[in-house]
């Protein structure tokens, strides 16, 4: 339990997708103009990350890794290592899951669909999602619960970052920013300052 809590806190604050690894920056910059849309996008990212990371975890451990095919095809496949295929498998899983999630949400919860709707297709090319799966593979989590917690925590970290910057950008519209720095430039610098603030969480361990 303690290990899970540790992964959760770490993925939200210390290894925050935006501030520590700059993942999902494109949508982060493009959609953070108002708090309302950024909440929608953040929710969609949490949703998709907590689904795709565990699925890709199963894929890595039961299909792609060296010797992972033994359970299915018997001992002579112990030397087969398909991990070079992981990029293309991950992106296929993500693209199809996004499509599937979109269809399911549209059918069963039209209100959620109307708030997430526009953002779901954008997510397939959001690098935070693919990054989540690649980090999961690199860090080799022990079991699927850890992978779920990692995916969910990273999503929350991304959500916090985009809502925070959107709130600041709404306020900064009334400030006197130097003309050449307006818009993109000041957003970069503010994100940098937020990143420095998040660095104060470094070293926290439960």
């Amino acid at each position: 339990m303690q290990e899970l809590a540790n992964i959760f806190i770490k993925s939200i604050f210390i290894e925050n997708m935006v501030f520590a690894y700059f993942l999902g920056m494109c949508s982060y910059l493009a959609i953070s103009k108002t708090v309302k849309t950024s909440v929608g996008m953040g929710m969609a990212v949490i949703f998709v990350l907590s689904i795709t990371v565990p699925i890709n975890y199963l894929l890595v451990n039961f299909v792609l890794e060296k010797g992972a095919l033994v359970w299915l095809l018997g001992d002579e496949f112990i030397d087969i290592d398909l991990s070079f295929l992981s990029f293309i498998m991950f992106i296929a899983v993500i693209a199809s899951m996004v499509q599937l999630v979109e269809m399911i949400v549209e059918k069963f919860s039209p209100t959620l669909y109307s708030s997430l709707g526009v953002f779901l297709p954008l997510i397939a090319v959001n690098c935070a999602i693919l990054g989540g799966s690649l980090f999961m593979q690199e860090r080799a989590y022990n079991n699927i619960t850890e992978a779920v917690v990692f995916g969910f925590g990273s999503g929350i970290g991304w959500f916090l970052a985009i809502v925070g910057i959107a709130a600041i950008r709404e306020k900064i519209r009334y400030s006197n920013v130097p003309p050449a720095l307006r818009g993109l430039g000041i957003t970069f610098i503010i994100t940098g300052l937020m990143g420095i603030a998040f660095m104060s969480f470094m070293g926290i361990k439960l």
């Binding site: 690894y21 700059f22 400030s175 003309p179 307006r182 970069f188 940098g192």
Partner: peptide, 28 residues
């Protein structure tokens, strides 16, 4: 070396570029 300074460095590059190239300036 820390990650946040990369953002600030890019911010400064954007600042310099837009000071030179006035037509790229955005509204607030």
């Amino acid at each position: 070396i820390l990650p946040p300074m990369a953002l600030v460095t890019v911010g400064v590059i954007i600042w310099i570029q837009r000071m030179r190239n006035k037509k790229l300036i955005e509204s607030n």
